[in-house]
């Protein structure tokens, strides 16, 4: 437990300090939302109907940022050896890293999204679904992303590969997340979509932490 907390706190500190890029994801997210009207035109009806997809595509892309820093630096500077030799099971190492990534990336997006969504003319009564869908879905994105980061760690120019691996696997989150916001905008019940989103995150948590731990265990030869 002590090792887990130490790792979690260290990863958070690392991403908050210079060169850590904790706010990059959130900044990127806001930027995409702000760019959309410039590309699509300021028509409120159009932006409103495009909003669910835009918000979730922005979230998908924004969570990619920072993933390269989740595993790679520890692999390069030898800290991963230390973690592999420690008493902390690698599944928990992964969990600490996912949590640190989510707290500095996904959670910030969850907080910012309801604030910037009105720029896309999302109704005030739909904002809670925006927040809820991101709150339920972004942990899944961090889990799958960390598994992708573990599998592609040590690869030259791993960033593009990481996106190529992670984005298709995160498609269910995009569909259910945008679906939930869509549902509430059309006056129907978003709960089914939100539950499916939660299910996706839970499955992602199990599969991705096992996969990432296996990848860290087998990462060298």
């Amino acid at each position: 437990m002590r090792a887990f907390t130490a790792l979690l706190l260290r990863d958070i500190v690392l991403s908050l300090r210079s060169g850590g890029g904790a706010w990059l994801g959130a900044g990127f997210f806001v930027l995409i939302i702000a760019l959309a009207p410039l590309g699509l035109g300021p028509e409120p009806a159009l932006l409103k109907s495009a909003a669910p997809g835009l918000i979730w595509i922005a979230a998908l892309l924004a969570t990619l940022l920072g993933l390269e820093r989740v595993i790679e630096p520890d692999l390069q500077d030898g800290t991963l050896d230390l973690l592999r030799m420690s008493a902390l099971p690698l599944e928990f190492v992964v969990l600490a890293k996912v949590l640190a990534h989510w707290l500095t990336n996904g959670l910030v997006i969850c907080v910012l999204a309801p604030l910037v969504s009105p720029m896309l003319f999302v109704d005030a009564k739909a904002l809670w679904v925006v927040a809820a869908s991101l709150l339920l879905g972004t942990p899944g994105l961090s889990f799958i992303g960390t598994a992708g980061a573990a599998v592609s760690a040590g690869v030259r120019r791993g960033g593009v590969l990481l996106a190529l691996i992670v984005l298709p696997l995160n498609i269910p989150a995009l569909i259910f997340g945008a679906g939930a916001i869509n549902a509430v905008q059309h006056g129907s019940d978003p709960r089914q979509a939100l539950l499916l989103l939660a299910a996706f995150s839970l499955i992602a948590a199990v599969v991705a932490s096992l996969a990432a731990a296996a990848a860290l265990r087998l990462n060298e030869d």
Binding site: A3, A6, L7, R10, P73, T79, L82
Partner: peptide, 19 residues
């Protein structure tokens, strides 16, 4: 070296001690 450029020496060694 297991040294992070943004952590101080003390922080690094404390982290190592925890691990």
């Amino acid at each position: 070296d297991t040294v992070k450029s943004s952590l101080t020496v003390k922080e690094t060694l404390r982290f190592h001690a925890d691990i």
